[in-house]
Design a protein around this nucleic acid. Structure first.
Lengths: 328, 328
DNA sequence: CAAAAAAATGCACACGTGCGCAATGATCTA
DNA sequence: TAGATCATTGCGCACGTGTGCATTTTTTTG
C-alpha cells in the first residue's frame, strides 16, 4: 500500500521499544533480551521489515558488493566462469555487481570508476586490461583488484591465471609426437594477452623442434572465425596439424576441416584446442584440448577476495591435456 | 594511502567552498557558477573523489540497482539472455545485481528477500518460480517484478514470455508435413512451465493429426540428457521424428541418433529443437529449430523495467521456425 | 537482604549525500 | 541610481542504520 520500505523506526514504534533495540535484534552478537527480541521480530514480520543494506554500508565500511567486469558473457568459457563465481560469492554472503564491458571493449576504466561509486569492496576483471592509473586508484581506496587470465607488469595486484605457456607446450609436444610436419596456430584479431602467450609459446616450441608454423588470426574469438581459419589454412595441403588458442576456434576449425575441406580428423589433420568447454566433449567433436580447471581458478579468485593480507599476488593455475579423438 | 574513500566534505575544504557546492557540482541541473564548478572539479580530481551512490540512494528512493535471479547461468540460452540484459541495463544507467539461484533451485524466495535488503528497484527472474507471497511483497514495497518465460496465474505482475505453444505447433506441423508416423517429445526432469507448455501443445497437435507420440523426460536440461534420450528412444525402430523442448536436448539427441544409434538425419529421423542457441547453427548440426528472438525478449524486459505505469502486464514474444537440415 | 556484577536499554552521534529555504550577490529595467 | 529580478551560496535537515556511553534493570554472590 504505502510505497516504499518499512524502517526500523516504524518497527520500534509498533513493538513499543527503542529503535536501537530493533537494530540490535538484527545485529548478530548484540545484547538483547529474549522478550524484546520476540516483540521486535513479531512486529518486523507483520510490517514486512527488511534491513536496509545500503544504509548499513554507510557506516560499516563493508558494502558486501563485489564488482565483476567482463566481455563476451555468452561465450561458454566466460559464462561458466561467471556461473561458478556468482555461486561462490553468494555462498560467502557477497553480492555480485555485474558490469558487461561489451560496449567499452577497449577502455574499461569508466566501468571500474562506476564500481568505485558503488563502493565495491573488490573488483574482479574477467576480461579487458585496466589502465595502470586505475590500479593505483584501487590501491589508494583500499579496493582489492583481481585480474583473471590477465598479466600486468606490477606486483601490487592480485592475478589469477592459467599456465598458458605450459598448456601451449603440451599441445606442441603432442603434435610433434603425432609427427606433424607443418602446423597452424589459430587465434583471433582481439589478441588477448592470454592468446598471445599461448600462440608464442607454441610457435617457439614447434620451431625449436624444426616444424614449420603458420599463424592465422582474424575476426572475433568464436566459432565462425575458427571455421574461416580452417577454410583458408587448409587450402595448403601440407598442413597436417593445428593448435587453436580457444576451443571455440578449434570447433569451427574442425567443422571446416571435415565438412568444407574434406579432411579426415585425426588421420589427415590433428587439432588441439584450449579451455575444455562443454561442447568440446560432445560426440560430434571429441576435441583433444588443454584443460583449465575452472573450479580451482574460481576458488583462487574467491580466496584472493576474502583473505585479509594477500600473501601470493600471482597465482598460476596448472593445466593439463585431455586426450580425446582429434589427434593422431 | 589513507584507507577509505574521499568524501564531499574533504573536497569542499580543499576547494574552499561549502559541501553543498560540491554536491551541486555533481548533480545535473543544479545551480552552480562556472568558477566554483571548476574549483570543485579540480579538487575532486586531485583527491580522487567519487560520489557515493549508496548514500545517494538513501534519500533518493532510486537505488539504480536491478536484481537478476537465474539458474544455469552457463547454459547457452540463459547466458545469452544475461549478456543482452546486462548490456541493456548498463546503457540505461542501471546496475545489475546478479544472484545465482543454483543453490536454491527450489525456493528463490530468500534470494528475492536479499534483493529487498539491497533496495533493488526491480527484480528480473530468469528462472525459478517465486512464491505468491513474495509477489505480494514486491507490490507492497513498490518493487517491480518481471518474470521471464514464466507464467503466473495473476494479473499484477510483469511477465515476458515466448509463444511456446505456437512454437510447439510449428514444430508439430513441420513433422506432420515430413510424414512422420511415430514421434518423440523430449524434455528434462526439471519440467519447467515453459517445457511443459511446449510438450503438451506439441503432443496435442500431433494426436489430433493421428500421429503416435511417446514422451521422454529425465535428467537435467542439457546435452547429456538429450543424448541419453536418443539412445533409449531410438531402440524403437518405428520412431522417425522428435521434438526436443530445448536445443541442448536436441543436439544431444542428434549425436545419439547419428553416432550411437546409426540413423541418418533427416532421412531416417527428423529432429526439431527450441531456442536457436548458437551451437544449433554449427556445421556439424544445422538443427532445424524454433527461434525465440532474444533481443526482442530482452527489449521487452527493459521496457517493462523503465516504463512508469506498466500498461501491458503480459507480453508474449512471437516465435518462428528456422529450417536447417534436420527435417526431411 | 544488601551489595556487586552483569545484562539490557535508550540517547545521541556518525556515516555521505540531496535538497528546501533563506540570505547574499549580481544583473537588468526604468 | 533605485528598485526589481534572478542566479548563486550556505545552513540545516532528512535518508536508515550501527554503536559507544551512560543509565536502568536484572541476576548473582556472600
Amino acid at each position: 500500500m504505502a510505497r516504499g520500505f518499512v524502517t526500523a523506526e516504524e518497527v520500534a514504534k509498533r513493538a513499543g521499544v527503542s529503535r536501537s533495540a530493533v537494530s540490535r535484534t538484527f545485529t548478530p552478537g548484540a545484547s538483547v533480551s529474549q522478550a524484546v527480541r520476540r516483540k521486535v521480530l513479531k512486529a518486523a514480520r507483520e510490517l514486512g521489515y527488511r534491513v536496509n543494506r545500503l544504509a548499513q554500508g554507510l557506516n560499516n565500511d563493508r558494502s558486501n558488493l563485489i564488482g565483476v567486469v567482463g566481455t563476451n558473457l555468452s561465450a561458454p568459457f566466460i559464462s561458466k566462469q561467471l556461473d561458478l563465481l556468482s555461486i561462490g560469492l553468494l555462498r560467502r554472503g557477497l553480492q555480485c555487481l555485474l558490469l558487461n564491458a561489451a560496449d567499452a571493449r577497449k577502455d574499461i576504466a569508466p566501468l571500474i570508476e562506476l564500481l568505485f561509486e558503488f563502493r565495491a569492496q573488490a573488483i574482479v576483471v574477467l576480461s579487458g586490461e585496466p589502465p595502470s592509473s586505475i590500479v593505483d586508484e584501487c590501491i589508494a581506496n583500499g579496493v582489492r583488484l583481481i585480474l583473471v587470465n590477465q598479466r600486468l607488469d606490477r606486483t601490487d595486484t592480485n592475478m589469477v591465471l592459467s599456465d598458458d605457456s605450459h598448456g601451449a607446450d603440451l599441445a606442441a609436444l603432442r603434435l610433434i609426437a603425432a609427427k606433424c610436419q607443418k602446423v597452424a596456430v589459430v587465434s583471433s584479431a582481439s589478441q588477448t594477452p592470454a592468446q598471445v602467450r599461448r600462440a608464442t609459446a607454441f610457435t617457439q616450441r614447434m620451431q625449436t623442434a624444426g616444424v614449420e608454423v603458420v599463424a592465422w588470426s582474424d575476426g572475433p574469438t568464436g566459432y565462425e572465425s575458427g571455421y574461416q581459419a580452417g577454410c583458408e589454412i587448409l587450402r595448403d595441403k601440407m598442413i597436417d596439424g593445428a593448435f587453436c588458442v580457444t576451443d571455440l576456434l578449434a570447433l569451427g576449425f574442425l567443422d571446416a576441416a571435415r565438412i568444407e575441406m574434406h579432411r579426415r580428423v585425426p588421420e589427415d589433420v590433428s587439432v588441439i584446442g584450449f579451455d575444455d568447454i562443454p561442447q568440446a566433449g560432445w560426440k560430434s567433436y571429441e576435441l583433444t584440448t588443454i584443460v583449465q580447471s575452472l573450479s580451482t581458478l574460481t576458488d583462487n579468485v574467491l580466496t584472493a577476495l576474502e583473505t585479509d593480507e594477500p600473501a601470493t599476488r600471482l597465482q598460476v593455475v596448472p593445466v593439463s591435456m585431455i586426450e580425446r579423438k582429434t589427434v593422431r
